[in-house]
Nucleic acid binder design. Structure first.
Lengths: 260, 260
DNA sequence: TGCAATCGGTTCATTATTTGAACCATTGGT
DNA sequence: ACCAATGGTTCAAATAATGAACCGATTGCA
């Protein structure tokens, strides 16, 4: 791993639950020597990517990321388009819609939209990391990822989130085959016990998978009719967004569309 | 300069006007060897900080910055608070209000709010870089920056944006003295010919300057009454935001408040 | 009060990584 | 057909990263 990758990996340890981390702790989390972590953090701090909190001396993400995000947003207005598409999708299904993006070997939630229709709903956390084997989004993405990546993901330890979580690589590969055939991934209680979710992958201009759009509903509310509605609307919105972003589905991804 | 700093400096060359840059060009801009730039970009790409465009092979900012910005935002809700404060300030003055943040030795515009009152208004660009010597925000920040930094900034070449732009370091230092006394910086036509702007610095918990809040109006609209209104409201909003962020003005920054 | 364990930060000889000139294979213009 | 760009790759030489040990300052505990 190069020095730059190490520095960037430091940033990965900040999360919603852990927005501020001390030097020693961060070094431990990243598996780096304290001196190394310190030097890297100093450089990141110089660039404004991290800053130290007023009271403690802990580190947190800095203002530079805001500037870059703003520029990214103007170059690729994905966030805006995603927000629109999610709103429309959640209106159509009356359930929670969300969108996640593949970043390296991790899948992180970019944006979501709730429906006001029901009192109970599936809630999401900003920038949440989604497990590949335990979520419909993860399965949707994984199904269309390169074989090497599938191998990497499935050979790592797979957390058993609930009793329903699939953790056997062979079983998961079988599920992925199904996802490739239908273009839609499904997960019932694999991540949270009471959540039933569907997901459809999103693609870039090279037909590489870049993330997934998903609808998550309480298991109790799922009926054949709702399932059909979700699958139809999710498919429509996800393929529409892929197109709107200048992306293309890979060959053979039209199965579901033909089945309509 | 460390390797990490070099890698991060590559990201600085992306801008609103230049959202996508090829390898050779980027290497040239950053003053790096092409092979070096390539290796650094590869690492950045691995981390999702840059990505290559579909058609060409040019590089642009990647999706990872969105995730980090989202986390930063939840750790420090500056953006939200700034947006509110700017809206209120622009409502009160009926002119364009904007806020910029100091990042290293650069001042970049974070957010702005227009007033619907007038047909003509000063317009802003997202993530625009503000010159220290030619904008009121820049002067406000510089006046309260450490002496070394003032020296660094003023010893670099100072672009003469308009006929009104001050480019003589000694003259600028005199202006800064005035800003320190009043707490408010003013620029008439220094950046754009027809723009009259006021700015007040913002401070963090250590009383270090972190940026500035400003109001910009067309020169033609400026009257003594409007100037007084802007100064009053700008002061109120800026000191309020500093406080709301847990910051403190440095000693002696209360001059203007007392003068009210 | 004093001990022990942490913390953030620093040092410097050792080591491993980065570096850059030169080199491809392509592409687009003349 | 040529030339001048481009993105990408190689490898010996040079440079920058590394980590154990150390510091002073806090902190928690007895």
């Amino acid at each position: 791993m190069g020095t730059v990758a190490k520095a960037l990996s430091l940033l990965d340890h900040f999360s919603r639950n852990r927005p501020e981390i001390g030097l020693s702790e961060l070094a431990r989390l990243a598996g780096l020597n304290k001196a190394t972590a310190y030097r890297l953090l100093s450089e990141l701090q110089q660039g404004g990517f991290v800053e130290q909190t007023g009271t403690g001396r802990e580190y947190r993400l800095g203002p530079a990321v805001l500037r870059l995000a703003s520029l990214r947003e103007t170059a690729v207005p994905l966030r805006d388009m995603a927000a629109q598409a999610l709103q429309s999708l959640s209106d159509a299904t009356h359930e929670t819609a969300h969108l996640s993006l593949l970043q390296g070997d991790r899948l992180s939630m970019l944006s979501y939209a709730y429906s006001p229709r029901h009192g109970t709903r599936v809630t999401m956390e900003d920038a949440q990391i989604l497990a590949f084997h335990a979520t419909s989004s993860g399965l949707a993405v994984l199904a269309f990822s390169p074989p090497e990546m599938i191998g990497r993901i499935l050979s790592a330890p797979l957390e058993k989130r609930t009793e329903e979580t699939l953790t056997d690589p062979a079983a998961i590969r079988a599920v992925l085959d199904g996802v490739r055939r239908t273009g839609i991934a499904e997960s019932v209680g694999g991540f949270e016990k009471d959540v039933h979710s569907h997901a459809v992958p999103l693609f870039d201009a090279q037909a590489r998978v870049i993330g997934a759009m998903a609808v998550a509903a309480p298991v109790a509310r799922m009926t054949p009719d709702l399932t059909a509605l979700i699958r139809r609307e999710l498919w429509r919105h996800a393929t529409g967004l892929t197109r709107a972003l200048g992306g293309f589905p890979p060959d053979g991804f039209t199965a579901q569309e033909a089945a309509e």
